[in-house]
Nucleic acid binder design. Structure first.
Lengths: 229, 229
DNA sequence: GTCAATCAGATTGACAGACAATATTACCTA
DNA sequence: TAGGTAATATTGTCTGTCAATCTGATTGAC
């Protein structure tokens, strides 16, 4: 009997991890597609097409779309349907301003509370980004950079900062990818990230905030360059 | 909804501007209900009941719920449905920390960019809150306080700050209302808000940030008191 | 040729109903 | 009383339907 109980537990656990509702899978798939730039800004998403492509019913799709709308990943105009929002530079700039505040805060907190093991891991990820930047490997740039930030945001001791920033970063993913491909920007970015790492490793909270804010400010300047007048 | 259809006949012009989908109205109604504390934390929202109460179909309701979920106003557990989240003190504290950053920033920006007319309006709203606080009128406290903040957030020159803060404030509305009712807290709160007003009126950006951050810190301390051990 | 009005097709908003999968409750037995 | 089982409630998902609205093209007048 006990064995059976344990088996049942085990199976339920497995299933509970894998068990996703159709709606959740649709959200994940669409989010990934949007973040990876599959849809150009302004692109209209037609329900029937998405249903066909994803193999789900309209109900499930529409529920997923409402979620993405609340995340600001898509806009939905009544009777016209959803589309990928076109970001104005004004909007992007405001997002960078908030990023500056929150990422500065996160870095500062990491300087005083990150474990030594985490700092080692941080350098590992930093150097992974370095390789991608040095080898001009644009496919790996976004992923390795995200891995670097991920550890900072997840260790800053405030889940809300992480949550809010994730939402903001999603809205400018297109812009970030484009600006990271500017000649020299990746390697410059590496140097700034190295400065963040070193301030954290030195446990220097004030510097960590300063260089992290400076990093975002530079990223903003780079992004502005990619904007047509 | 049939009622809506009939109404549109009579006021076609009016509604063409304000035209809202059923789904949007459901989101608004539910959001208001949640913010006003109609549902206690932990309360389960049953689809059938809400459909009945709101007079809408399950499709419309479920789409609305997905939106509220993305706003963190409700949580939805697969196969168990939506419920009002129970906020832990840890979560609330992290929200207050981010509020401190963002509201400080907003106040600072207002000090340098608010118009003289806006400053007059700010004092008007400040005194409206004063009356509610002095007269121990708990029904007006939340509304007048919100009106005071509203003008600061909408004039700070950054819509994202406003957006993010609105999301965060929604998640602790219950807590705020409770702590505002602590004996003496409302009047103390007024004094802090007056300090914010004066710093902005003096065009003193540094002070505006400082007192605004202090105000949030005090609000956090008051909120903590209302938390059971 | 340009502009406006009109019309057909495409698309969305909303509803109802159905059914299986899952969770919750009530009940029963040992 | 504890533990298991059956009955009920609730959710997840799909299908089909219909009206309202938007889009694009055609037509007609000037």
């Amino acid at each position: 009997m006990l064995v059976l109980e344990e088996l049942r537990w085990g199976m339920e656990l497995d299933l509970r991890i894998t068990r996703k509702t159709v709606q959740q899978e649709v959200v994940d798939k669409l989010r990934q597609a949007i973040l990876s730039g599959t849809f150009a800004p302004g692109h209209r998403l037609v329900e029937a097409e998405l249903c066909e492509a994803l193999g789900v019913s309209r109900s499930s799709l529409r529920e997923a779309l409402r979620g993405l709308q609340a995340e600001h990943l898509i806009e939905i105009i009544p009777n016209r349907g959803p589309h990928i929002p076109v970001l104005t530079w004004e909007d992007a700039e405001e997002i960078y301003e908030v990023r500056e505040l929150l990422e500065g805060e996160a870095a500062m907190r990491c300087a005083s509370r990150m474990s030594d093991d985490d700092i080692v891991e941080l350098e590992v990820r930093l150097e992974a980004f370095h390789r991608a930047a040095r080898d001009e490997n644009p496919d790996d740039l976004a992923g390795t950079a995200a891995a670097f930030y991920e550890i900072i945001l997840s260790r800053c001791g405030n889940k809300i900062i992480n949550q809010v920033l994730a939402g903001l970063l999603a809205r400018i993913s297109y812009l970030r990818k484009r600006s990271m491909s500017l000649p020299g920007r990746a390697i410059k970015s590496y140097e700034e990230m190295r400065a963040i790492y070193e301030a954290i490793a030195d446990r220097n909270a004030r510097d960590a905030r300063k260089v992290a804010m400076k990093h975002v400010a530079n990223a903003r300047a780079a992004a502005k360059q990619t904007f047509p007048v």
